[in-house]
Write a protein that binds this DNA or RNA. Structure first.
Lengths: 186, 186
DNA sequence: TGATCCATGTAAGCCGTTACATGATTGG
DNA sequence: CCAATCATGTAACGGCTTACATGGATCA
């Protein structure tokens, strides 16, 4: 009985699926790496999850001592873990979640000072550009797997549509904002 | 000192900003309504938040007894609450969050049975279509505020780009999947 | 020399979900 | 007649973040 996986465990197994990793590496991967669209876990979630996975036979670990550096625990997925991962992924997926502070600011554009709206827009723009660049770097780097390339193309399509719209219509949103009377306190 | 607002409180004030509401109505608004892109709060979060807002002078409430129905507590925002909301919205926004189970399934397309990939794709498609329809209904209904219309146009641009890509390239993703040997247990 | 990276882990505490309690009315 | 809607709240439980503890190496 796979005792079904928590989201963090699923993430760990997904990352381990493509190769060995330490907790530290997994954390980096899900903050900056290719896995940041799934869930965002902290050390306090990852280390216990890995320990649990190892205890239940979904992963093994090997200690790697290295001079002058803390010892690393390198985890590897087991066949049982691979099975559990694929089973978890085969379950009907929960809906995707998009939570946007930017949209809330946009909704209140006419009540907010222009500079606030402009800043939120610029920030959103920056974020989109950064994500697009991340994809570009990935594709350039190599063609990984066909599935990863599909993802990259999909991501590019969604992100660039969003960015284009902001570039074309951003000014119109700023124009809706309050004259700069400075509502804001700080 | 506004003692800055929790996300749930901010949501409540945002909804109250456009008119009076009860906790029950706020909950509906942030699950099905126009506010579902901000945060997704439950009763257990909303009722205490409203009580706190009232206690701190950000909102007032009036009891409304009605025959045969439970009494409603209708909340209204105060000038102080309006200030606190705008101040909160003026703070540098946190980055938008997109968390997708679908993308994880897509990433593992070549390891998963075709029907699983096809189902995830169909589900994602359905979700996008539903959100587009929601926007269409909103725009058709009336033109609300200019800012709301801007949001609708932006949402349409993002969602339809995503939907188009899935409609055009979805088959290619399914083609990457495992032959239907039925990995999955259930 | 001071920050940042590497590296693992624990403990406390917050925040929020889930489930429960209550109950009349309306619609299928 | 059963389910869902309207309507408010509380209590327990759980999971995750934050902060802490530790410490050498490297880089600016």
């Amino acid at each position: 009985m796979p005792a079904d996986l928590s989201p963090v465990s699923t993430l760990c197994l997904a990352i381990l699926h493509r190769g060995e990793a330490t907790g530290y590496e997994i954390k980096k991967e899900c903050v900056e790496g290719d896995y940041r669209y799934f869930i965002d876990a902290s050390y306090g979630a990852i280390y216990p999850a890995l320990a649990r996975l190892a205890a239940e036979g979904f992963a093994t670990h090997r200690e790697e001592t290295q001079p002058g550096r803390p010892a690393r625990k390198v985890y590897a997925i087991t066949p049982k873990g691979r099975d559990a991962l694929l089973t978890a992924l085969s379950e009907p997926p929960e809906p995707d979640v998009f939570r946007s502070r930017f949209l809330l600011v946009a909704k209140f554009a006419s009540e907010l000072p222009q500079e606030v709206v402009a800043r939120a827009l610029a920030e959103r723009r920056r974020q989109l550009a950064e994500e697009l660049e991340h994809i570009a770097k990935f594709v350039e780097g190599e063609g990984d797997s066909p599935a990863a390339n599909w993802l990259a193309a999909y991501g590019r399509a969604c992100l660039s549509a969003s960015l284009d719209h902001i570039d074309t219509n951003g000014d119109a949103l700023v124009a809706l904002a309050d004259r700069p009377v400075a509502h804001a306190a700080e």
